[in-house]
Simulated scan of single mutants.
Amino acid sequence: MKWTVMTLVKRASEILSERGIPSPRLDAELLMCCLLGWDNRVKIYTAYDRPLSAEEVEAYRQLIKRRVKGEPVAYITGEKEFFGFRFKVTPAVLIPRPETELLVEKSVELLKSMSKETLKIVDVGTGSGCIIISIAKLLKKDAEFFATDISRKALDVAVENAELHGCKVRFLKADLLEGVEGKFSAVVSNPPYIAYSDRRVESSVKMFEPSVALYAGKKGTEVIERLAFQSFDKLEPEGFLAVEFGEGQSEKVRDIFERAGFSTIKIFKDLSGKDRIIVGFKKE
């Protein structure tokens, strides 16, 4: 049989569907684009009848086999879109997720409203660097950007992404904010917030994504608690801490922020209506 782009995509999506893979058609199309070096899935429909060589068919089959085993598409293709920007990802970093875009959106809104001439922002547990880089590209104000991570491999990915997007970010290897000098206008973070016993974690996430970026301890809020107390000391007056947290944790994280000394605490819901982002301000 002579395979074309569309006939092979259709067959691959059928296979993925049969194996219970979520969004089988989308995954099949993304992997085809990866194979052929196409930037946009529209090309699949404009070049649907392009014939594929035996080598291309075999290479695509290998990509589909990896997806069938549960490996995330982002790790197979080596990239993921976040806030409209494309980022390199590897198994050393958490895959950027749509709900985290709310953290960027709210942080940028608050930073734009600040009256300070020069801002200093630090992203804690930066991973791929998608949060701080997106903020840097969207802020349009005079600012210094910093990011920390405990993983050197993750920092290497973040550095590469910053260079790719032409953003000047100072990356620091640190456990949260330990040993980080200076004061900041804002601390932002998508920290680990999953409890060790949480059974809601998808098997592919447990198998492939870095556990250090996922799990926080027995309660799930241990890292957020450490970060809140560290951040309060590191923030300038009127500065804020913005953190993503997990489902069912809103009361716990609010209590943590209050105990750490934050005031005017606000919680924002994601597009699915779940409490997702908490922001606390340090009074002058």
Rank of each mutant, 00 (worst) to 15 (best):
W3R: 14
W3N: 07
T4S: 14
V5I: 13
V5W: 03
T7D: 15
L8A: 08
V9E: 08
V9W: 04
V9L: 07
V9Y: 02
R11D: 10
E14V: 12
I15P: 03
I15E: 03
I15S: 03
I15A: 04
L16T: 06
E18K: 15
R19W: 09
R19T: 05
G20Y: 06
I21E: 02
I21K: 01
P22F: 10
S23R: 14
L26V: 13
L26K: 11
L30Y: 08
L30I: 14
L31P: 03
M32Q: 04
M32S: 06
C33F: 08
C34G: 12
L35V: 11
L36Q: 11
L36M: 15
L36D: 10
G37T: 12
W38C: 02
D39W: 03
D39K: 13
D39T: 07
D39M: 01
N40G: 03
N40T: 10
R41T: 12
I44K: 01
I44Y: 07
Y45H: 15
Y45M: 08
Y45I: 09
A47F: 14
A47V: 00
A47Q: 14
Y48K: 14
D49P: 02
R50E: 09
R50M: 13
P51S: 13
L52G: 07
L52F: 09
S53C: 08
S53V: 11
E55F: 11
E55W: 00
E56Y: 12
E56P: 03
A59Q: 13
Y60H: 05
I64F: 07
I64P: 01
I64M: 08
R67K: 15
R67Y: 02
V68F: 02
G70T: 03
E71K: 12
E71H: 06
E71P: 04
P72T: 10
V73R: 00
V73W: 02
V73T: 14
A74D: 01
G78H: 12
G78N: 11
G78E: 12
K80R: 15
E81W: 15
F83L: 12
F83K: 15
G84Q: 11
G84P: 09
F85C: 03
F85Q: 00
R86C: 01
R86P: 04
R86N: 08
F87Y: 08
K88D: 11
K88W: 07
V89Y: 02
T90I: 13
T90H: 10
T90Y: 09
A92M: 05
A92V: 03
A92T: 10
I95V: 15
I95L: 10
I95T: 12
P96F: 00
P96V: 05
P96R: 06
T100P: 06
T100N: 09
E101W: 14
L102H: 12
L103I: 06
V104D: 01
K106T: 06
K106D: 07
K106C: 04
S107R: 04
S107E: 03
V108N: 00
V108C: 00
V108Y: 00
V108K: 06
E109L: 11
E109W: 13
E109M: 11
K112P: 01
S113Q: 14
M114L: 15
M114F: 09
M114V: 09
E117A: 12
T118D: 06
T118L: 12
T118P: 00
K120E: 12
K120I: 02
I121G: 00
D123Q: 09
G125T: 08
G125S: 07
T126S: 06
T126G: 02
G127H: 03
S128M: 05
S128W: 08
C130M: 05
I131R: 05
I132V: 15
I133W: 04
S134K: 05
I135Y: 01
